[in-house]
Computed example of a mutant assay.
Amino acid sequence: MLLPWSPPCKVLCRSCAVMGKLQSKLKHSTYKYSRPDGILEERIQTKACQEYSPAHVDTVSVVAALSSDLCVSGGKDKTAVAYDWKTGNVVRRFRGHEREITKIACVHRSSQFFSASRDRMVMMWDLHGPSQPRQQFSGHAMVVTGLAVSPDSSQLCTGSRDNTLLLWDVGTGQCAETASISRNLLWDLRQTRNRICEYKGHFQTVTSCVFLPRALALMPTIATSSHDCKVKIWNQDTGACLFTLSLDGSGPLTSLAVGDTVSLLCASFSRGIHLLRVDYSQGLALREVAAF
C-alpha cells in the first residue's frame, strides 16, 4: 500500500513562495520601438521600479501637475492628494467630496487647484490654505466630467453628463453662464482648413492626451494613455506612432500629466500612479522609473 508523501510538495510550495516574493519586487514592462528602417521591435524592461508610498488606497482617476515637483491626484477614495513625485512623499490630503473625484485642474503658477466629483460638486483648494475648500461650485445635476480654468484664473468652466456647460466666477462662486449641449453634438474645429491629423493605434478608449515639452525633442510630439494599458508617443504633425510602452498589470490607464521636460505622470486603475521618464539620448524611449 502506497501512502501519500507530502514533504516534497511542501518544499516545492516554499520555493514557489520565495520565487514569488523575489519576482514581485521587479516591475516588468514591454514596449514597442519603431526603428529607422521601419521594423517594429518589441522589447522587455526588467529593471526594478522604485516603489514609493501609495498616494491613494483605491483606483486613481486623475492626476495633474501642480508644479515641477508636485502633482495632485484624485480617485475612488474621495481624496485629493498633493504628492512630491521626486521624493515619494505625500504633502497633503484634501477631503470634502462625498464620491469619487473625476477631474483635477491646477491653476497655473499657483498653489491652488480645483477638484470635480461624482457628487456633482466642484471644489477649490489651496495647498497652503485651510483644510476646508476655499470655494464650492454647485449647479450640475449629474457627475462633473470636465474642468477648465481661464488663463487669468478668474473663471472656471465645467462640463457634466447632464449635457450642460457652466461658466463660473471663481471669486464669488456664482454661475455666470449656462449652455446646454446635445450628447451627440459634433464640433467642427476645421475652420482654418488646416489638415486634421488622426492618431491610430490604441485598441480601447483613449483617456488622456498631452503635448510633450519641445526642449529635448527633435519634433513636436504628444503622448496618449488608454484603457488598453498602453502609453503612446506620437509625431504630432504626421500621426506616426514613435513609441509604445505597455504597463502590464496596471489595468486601464486613466490620466496623463507632464511633470517636467522629461517626466510623465500616468494614473491607473490597479497600480496607482506611474512615473515615466522620456529619454531622447539614443532615439525616443519611455520607461517606468517609479510608482506610487
Rank of each mutant, 00 (worst) to 15 (best):
W5T: 07
S6Y: 11
R14A: 13
A17L: 13
K21F: 06
Q23I: 06
S24L: 08
K27V: 11
S29D: 11
K32M: 14
G38D: 01
E42M: 11
K47M: 07
E51S: 10
D58L: 09
S61A: 15
A65Q: 10
S67A: 06
C71I: 12
G74T: 13
T79F: 01
A82Q: 01
D84L: 00
G88D: 00
G88Y: 00
R93E: 13
R93F: 01
F94N: 03
E98R: 14
C106D: 04
S110I: 03
F114L: 06
V122N: 04
P130Q: 09
P133W: 00
T145W: 01
D152H: 10
S154N: 12
L156D: 06
L166E: 04
G173D: 11
T178R: 15
T178M: 14
A179F: 05
I181W: 01
L185Y: 04
L186I: 11
L189Y: 13
N194R: 15
G201F: 06
A215E: 10
I222S: 02
I222C: 12
A223Q: 07
A223I: 09
K232I: 12
I233C: 01
I233P: 09
G239L: 07
A240E: 15
S250A: 10
S255D: 06
G259M: 04
D279C: 10
